[in-house]
Write a protein that binds this DNA or RNA. Structure first.
Lengths: 224, 224
DNA sequence: ACTTGACCGTACCGTACGTTACGGTTCGGC
DNA sequence: GCCGAACCGTAACGTACGGTACGGTCAAGT
């Protein structure tokens, strides 16, 4: 028997294939219909009964939580290992992170998911926003931190606080993209544009924190 | 008689004082309860009848639209006139814009309003997201553009495209603040932090686009 | 063949909420 | 003092949807 996915709060058993099909249905429904994310619609789309939904996921919130967690688990891209860390490798790593992040936040799935989580954050219940944050913004922060630290140790980067440096990078990459997309702006990012923006953001970040411009260190954290 | 506010789509008559009180009630309810933004609750909070709400605003969407437009109209801060444009004045202008923007996006009102608009953008109806975008992100872009252009004409700034330069500034200022707040992260920005972040973002922007660092021009738009 | 259990499809229930209707009150104009 | 318009408070209606119950089907085990 596939135990209820939501026995506790953080207990995350792997969903079965059939259950994954249900989550896929939730996701597709979220992306296509946006609004009509009703239990009946999910059951119809997934060709399963509502009773099964409730048995597997407890309630509507459990289903949404499971969907968010499942999708979040799929997003993780491969970690960038620090090989011979020269400036070219570092730049490529940063560009890779930037391009990956832009791809994620501009994908219809991410947009729908973030809209859902934001709507949920308005009401207090069930921490969808926290899950999305932990697996999006904070996950990429944790994955990028070692790269930045390694860059600093190799003398390629200068900054005081890795977190602050990351947030600068985050801002340079994302700019107004996510908020515009969430608010329904018809902004399309082609693959080429993503690569171009990733390169631009990386160059800007290196201009601020790269070792080449040694006189810019203080920009990492002005003395309050 | 106070005509219905939503006779057409873009026809925006000024609300009367009493109507403003209603909109204020909507806003406060949105901020406090987040979720429970029901017509009955609005009527109760505003001490008016539901019938009056429907007479004035047509339907729920009309009420929300009127609220968003009314709030948007209040946000406009004074435009910064270009006096003697030296580098100190320019820096102060940029810092002022940054601090103002950070104050806006971190205010409970803005958070609630953006959540509402984002939730609405999921369903296709009634362009709340467009209104918020037009009066937020794009309005500040339009107001900042002349400052940037003047800075360039005065030889204080270097960039190819004002829009691109603005988006860089936007990213440096906002970073991850808005998305984190929208997703319910307990991030508090004190007045001092806002000022510090505004200064940091301004310094970073000037490091990228300021005339002092003449070798960084190409960062405004790398050649694909 | 019979039982068991997982599951589908559908009908059903209760509630929340948008919307409408209506009686009562206040107030400006005559 | 009377009338009508604007408005308040509340009740009522219809619907959408979360959640539950139940009968029917299929497959596996005995």
């Amino acid at each position: 028997m596939a135990a209820t996915l939501k026995t506790h709060d953080s207990e995350t058993e792997e969903p079965t294939a059939r259950q994954e099909a249900v989550l896929e249905a939730v996701l597709s429904l979220m992306v296509e219909e946006g609004d009509q994310l009703t239990m009946a619609a999910v059951a119809r789309r997934a060709s399963c009964s509502k009773e099964t939904l409730y048995k597997w996921f407890g309630d509507r919130d459990g289903l949404l939580t499971a969907t968010v967690q499942w999708q979040a688990a799929r997003v993780r891209a491969g970690a960038y290992d620090r090989q011979s860390l020269d400036i070219a490798t570092l730049r490529d790593s940063l560009k890779g992170f930037a391009a990956n992040w832009l791809s994620v936040i501009s994908s219809p799935t991410s947009i729908a998911l973030n809209r859902l989580a934001i709507g949920h954050a308005a009401s207090r219940k069930s921490n969808l926003g926290g899950i999305v944050l932990a697996n999006g913004r904070f996950a990429i922060g944790e994955r990028l931190r070692p790269v930045l630290e390694a860059g600093r140790e190799a003398g390629l980067l200068h900054f005081d606080d890795a977190e602050t440096a990351f947030r600068t990078f985050f801002g340079l990459v994302g700019r107004d993209v996510q908020i515009r997309l969430l608010l329904g702006d018809a902004l399309v990012l082609s693959r080429a544009e993503i690569m171009r923006d990733a390169a631009r953001a990386t160059d800007q970040f290196l201009a601020l924190h790269g070792a080449a411009t040694s006189s810019k260190d203080d920009l990492a954290g002005p003395k309050a």
